[in-house]
Nucleic acid binder design. Structure first.
Lengths: 239, 239, 239, 239
DNA sequence: GATGAATGAGGGTTCATTCAT
DNA sequence: TATGAATGAACCCTCATTCAT
């Protein structure tokens, strides 16, 4: 099994005594925590860390300021919780696309599509903007996001390429670099266009398929083996 | 001569009457404007928009607060002027690398190096973070930055590829897409690593040369013509 | 028997019906009251009124916030109850020193020592600071503290001096003033030094004995009768 | 010349350039500084450090919150400035009473009166309460107040006693202790009564004269020499 | 009766903007 | 015209008090 990043979501509430009496321990009501996170996410993603005020969050989440501070020690901690969550939502289940079976080309296209569509969709672009904007002042935040998100994914995908090499389908000197090349080819031009708000709409499925297919072509033309061509030729013949 | 993006710098000084009296109209002394922009740039790039205070800028620029507000209506407007300028500094002269002569491979490597080193150097990454962070709230800012910077460069490079096609050295169906592919291959993995502060140091020349060479290889393997191979073979022989 | 100030501790529990059901009326369980007072005292004395938070008290006392508000209407009322109690602890048993027997000089020294050591010990100084600091805003608090503490003691000591006059050992026109003089001589300089935190350590027994002895000397030189001198001379001879 | 403590009042305003143009440097307008200090003093003295809010001070001083922070870095710093000033106002010129001439007894009474009336007057008691209340949490504040105020005065007075010893008018083993004794005798009972708000009115001149006279009597009876008695007898005869 | 999670006014402090000089 | 002292709204955070459980 290749995929799925991090579980997180703190187990919370052990609240022994309080729970018996139907009352939750302070800072341990998951519904309230959710409410705060949801409100805060909207505000942080929309406004960025600095421009977001705790009053905005208070209003958006529908809880009082004091309550937020029961669940999160500071604005910064709340923000980091949001980012962690977003990262999880973005990258979990993303690498399942590598496992579905089918030919190498099919798998690469399936994976490239999933990855690129995810990374460039509106919500995710906004989250990334927020993290990148905050990375100037809180570099750790960005670093952690990258390590647990893109970097982890990169390692999984590098492993996938290695397997394909073991099967004799690919031949490359530097699989990690190849993995980066593949990823970036799949979003050729699109990532920056989205990030800088040049595009107001995320790429369509169709457009994405065109770019990904071109990227896979290029990738396989570079790293595919004779064995791969024979396999593909045989398949094409049977269709 | 292929390159160089936009000069702008608002026409400034109409100062009719004031000038006659040996005095400039309010907000029209270009030296003062320069002084403000230089001070503000340092502060904005170092601290980001929100963390930068007008007092910081005042101190760094050596002009009074009131004066800044004569030249720029608000902190935000000043910020946008800085970004415009930064964009100019980043992308101007960048595309000169396409003109220096030499073989196609040499030119592509020279250009890929220039571009990637520029885009991932510390100052530029910080500027981009700042723009990206602000793009959520001021999408126009990011859009303008992208259009006049990366997009314009993309068009110049697409033109270059077209020329190479005309010379019979390259063969591609979609030169604009190819241009994006090339650009992103040259920074494979690195751009995001820098943006998210996973890397605290920009890539070294050496590392960059390795990545760019791999990117050019892949690019030419995909799009190079027989004529290109012959040319390269002949050159290799004469060395 | 001369001494011991005030018993207080409000009569509490009338708890008619509740008591019958084996349950106390709200705010009437003396053990709980004790628990709250003990916790609150530690917090108030350590931190002062303003810096002490009800959460601190809650934690220290081991009772819930709501419960505290059942026993005390407000933070301020709780504070006043603490002060009352502290006063009792400081001044009760203090005047027993006047009764132990021995010569007049011995008794005065014993009493002077007890009084001065008590008034200048760390805990008591802190309590007094707290009361004095609050006296600006709640003058009644200070007044009550003074009346039931120092003033009451002053009256007891004045009575003692009167007895000594009756025995012909002392001769003074204004015993109440003399009582004040004695008290202040016994702490000459020390009280203010402690109050203003010029001293971080309370005076040692040794130092205090030196000051008290000097004070008693001065006092008796002023107010002692011929009869006293004869008595002391005789005693000195028999030793 | 015996007396006068500390000059303080920062020299302020050198404001070179600004002054030329009739504008003061930030935080250097003495009138504004005065206004802030006056407003803050009223609030701090009335409410104590903790209970005083910067909003109260803003209102009382009639300046905006931002302005206060130009002149004083924090609430605490403002408070300390107030206390320093109060100390100066209390103790400056107090020890001039030791110089006026006249017999030793007259001088002691004059000094004792000046000191006691000052220390027990309403304004000064309130200031002392504030300092004492704050001493719990900021011991340095109280210590500094004591050292530069009462302690400095104590040293001056000890010097005076020394001179009287040199003249053969007094005889004492421990002049510093004697100085404390004198000081405390002059306020016998009164200091604590005022501090704890048992007295709502400061002692009258008449009452103070009675207490001081009694204190001086006692003091001289203890420490006066035969020479002093002869001198006083001669003076009494000539009257 | 006891609990402690929730409230929201108010704490000290900062800072973009204005305007008298 | 250029200045920078003054403003006051808004910042993040705390905490006395309440009330549903």
């Amino acid at each position: 099994m290749i995929s799925d990043l991090s579980p997180e979501i703190p187990g919370d509430q052990q609240n022994t005594e309080a729970a018996r009496r139907g009352r939750r321990a302070a800072g341990c009501d998951p519904a309230k925590r959710r409410q705060i996170l949801d409100g805060a996410r909207r505000v942080f993603i929309d406004l960025g860390f600095d421009a977001a005020s705790m009053n905005d969050i208070t209003r958006e989440a529908g809880v009082s300021k004091g309550t937020i501070y029961v669940y999160f020690a500071s604005k910064e901690e709340l923000f980091e919780a949001i980012i962690e969550e977003e990262r999880g939502k973005i990258f979990n289940n993303l690498y399942g696309a590598l496992e579905g079976g089918g030919s190498l080309r099919e798998t690469l296209i399936r994976f490239g599509m999933a990855l690129s569509l995810k990374i460039t969709c509106d919500k995710v672009i906004r989250a990334q903007r927020t993290v990148i904007g905050a990375s100037e002042r809180v570099p750790d935040l960005g670093r952690r996001f990258y390590e647990r998100g893109p970097l982890h994914g990169h390692m999984l995908f590098t492993g996938f390429l290695q397997s394909a090499m073991d099967e004799g389908l690919l031949d490359m000197k530097d699989p990690p670099l190849a993995a980066y090349q593949f990823t970036d080819l799949c979003m050729a031009g699109l990532f920056r266009q989205c990030l800088f708000a040049y595009r107001t709409e995320p790429p369509s499925d169709e457009e994405m398929r065109y770019v990904v297919a071109a990227g896979v072509d290029m990738f396989l033309k570079s790293y595919g083996t004779v064995k791969l061509w024979e396999l593909e030729a045989r398949e094409a013949a049977t269709e």
